[in-house]
C-alpha cells in the first residue's frame, strides 16, 4: 500500500487568530509499514492524521492512497464517507458510544455501515473481542470498563470492519502507565499481522520498537523522514536533534 500526501495546507481560524497548522506538507510512504509521526506538540501530527483519515478537508494539496486521490473536493460528501469506511481510526479519548455495550459498539458499524447481517456481525465481533481479551466485557457499558479496556474495545471496533489501514491518534495519552503497556502490546501484536498502521504518539520508546519509519513533523512540515533506527541514532535536522534531546533527557 502506498500513501502520499502532496502539498497539504491546512489553516484554522480567521484573521488575527489564523493559524497555519500544515504548511505545504509532503509525505510519501510505502506500506506495509508502521509509520510513526513524531514531533513537538502543535507541529501538525494529529491534523495530518485527521486529513489522511478523511475527517478534515485540507485547504490545499492532495492525499493519494494507492494512487487514488481522497475525494476532498469536486465530489459529493458520500464519496468521502465511502473513503472513511475503509479505514479504522483509534482516538486518544477512545470515543466509544457510552450508551451502548462494548459489543454493540463493535457490532453497530458492521451492521449499519457495512451492511453485514446481525448474526454474522455479532460472530465476527465476538471473535475479535476474544482475541483482544475482551470476552468477559462484551455486555458492559464503556463506563464500567477501565481506560485500557475501553481503548481495546475501540481498537476492536476499528479492526472489525477489516480496514485497509489503521490510524492511531495518540492512543495511550489518556492512560496510566500500566494501561499504556496493555494497549501498546496489543498494537505490537497487530503489527505482526501486517496491517498497515499510522501512529501518532508521544511514546518514544514504543515508536522506536514498533515503527519501521518515522516522519518528524514540526511547524506544519515533514522535516525528516527515514528508517526508525537512523532517526533515533542520528537525527539530521537541528529541530529533530533538539526535540530528541528534550524528550530523551528524562
Amino acid at each position: 500500500m502506498k500513501l502520499e500526501a502532496l502539498g497539504i495546507t491546512k489553516t484554522f481560524g480567521l484573521g488575527k487568530d489564523h493559524r497555519r497548522v500544515l504548511d505545504n506538507l509532503t509525505l510519501k510512504v510505502e506500506f506495509p509499514h508502521v509509520l510513526a509521526l513524531l514531533g513537538p506538540s502543535g507541529g501538525g501530527k494529529s491534523t495530518l492524521l485527521r486529513v489522511i483519515a478523511g475527517l478534515e478537508r485540507p485547504d490545499g494539496g492532495e492525499v493519494l492512497l494507492d494512487n487514488e486521490p481522497v475525494p476532498f473536493r469536486d465530489q459529493p460528501v458520500s464519496a468521502l464517507r465511502t473513503y472513511r469506511r475503509r479505514l479504522g481510526v483509534v482516538f486518544q479519548a477512545f470515543n466509544l458510544f457510552p450508551h451502548m455495550t462494548a459489543l454493540q459498539n463493535v457490532v453497530l458499524p458492521l451492521t449499519a455501515v457495512h451492511g453485514i447481517p446481525e448474526k454474522e456481525a455479532k460472530e465476527r465481533s465476538l471473535g475479535i473481542m476474544k482475541r483482544l481479551g475482551l470476552s468477559e466485557h462484551g455486555e458492559k457499558l464503556p463506563g464500567q470498563l477501565s481506560g485500557g479496556q475501553r481503548q481495546r474495545v475501540a481498537i476492536a471496533r476499528a479492526l472489525a470492519v477489516k480496514p485497509k489501514f489503521l490510524l492511531f491518534d495518540e492512543p495511550t495519552s489518556a492512560l496510566d502507565p500500566e494501561m499504556t503497556a496493555e494497549v501498546l502490546s496489543l498494537i505490537a501484536e497487530l503489527r505482526q499481522e501486517g496491517i498497515p498502521m499510522l501512529l501518532v504518539t508521544h511514546e518514544m520508546g514504543f515508536a522506536r520498537k514498533i515503527a519501521d519509519q518515522v516522519a518528524f513533523l514540526a511547524n506544519g512540515r515533514v522535516l525528516e523522514q527515514g528508517e526508525v533506527g537512523n532517526f533515533f541514532s542520528k537525527p539530521q535536522t537541528l529541530e529533530a536533534q533538539r526535540f530528541m534531546a528534550k524528550v530523551l533527557a528524562y
Partner: peptide, 16 residues
C-alpha cells in the same frame, strides 16, 4: 463533539 467525530470516522451518514 468527539462522539460526532467518532461517528464520522466510522462512516455513519448524518441520519445514522
Amino acid at each position: 463533539a468527539t462522539q460526532i467525530e467518532s461517528a464520522r470516522a466510522i462512516g455513519f451518514t448524518d441520519f445514522q
